[in-house]
Amino acid sequence: MAKWVMVIDLDKCTACQACVVACQVENNIPIAGPDETERQRIIRWMEIIPFIYGEYPDVRMRLLPRPCMQCDNPPCTKVCPVRATMLGPEGIVAQIYPRCIGCRYCTSACPYTVKYFNWHTPSWPEEMRNSLNPDVSVRPAGVVEKCTFCIHRLQKAREKAAAEGRQLREGDYIPACVQTCPSCAMYFGDSENPKSIVSDLIKSPRAFRLLEEIGTEPKVYYLSEGQ
């Protein structure tokens, strides 16, 4: 069974936010608008978060692209009362939008705060409405959503491979953010496959994961910046 893993090389990352935009478009994420953004209601499955160290004048800032960590031991799926969020067989934490009752227990339990709630019925500017991605469902108001590692791309890749009568190959399935990254800072693949790039990268001494100490076993790895 595959185990999908993302690796983000912080040395290469320029924090250009192309991944954020790509994600937004790929996954039909609604536009919050300035007022709702001000109220912290914006939805960003992929977000650049700043770590700021030190005090003026000796300040250092690190910027970190942050998708859902796709934990192997997810605190969010544990607490869901209706199994609307669950750990899939290939390690992707799934959301079932038509089942979610909107209690926001998973959003409150996630130590990375990567889960988002639809405070309103999602809306897009007129021009964008016709360019929604048909592969991704539009979420109704009142349900929780989050990064899915573009799981619809996995389904499509599988179907395509099956049609061509072959196995899924390395690189057949990559999420939109990884595909878009202009500095090639993001890698994606099956860590169970010893020949994949990610299985090598996660063994690197530079590799770390966020909040490793709380035992959630994330499947998003970062390669630390060189000094």
Partner: peptide
């Protein structure tokens, strides 16, 4: 108050239909 808090009060019966006993919210219920 729990019903007021739900994003989808129309789906509240999912707790019975798909209820997960592992969730503390179900213990509450």
């Amino acid at each position: 108050n729990i019903l007021m808090d739900l994003g989808r009060p129309d789906r509240v019966l999912n707790i019975i239909k798909y209820g997960r006993f592992q969730s503390p919210l179900v213990w509450d219920l």
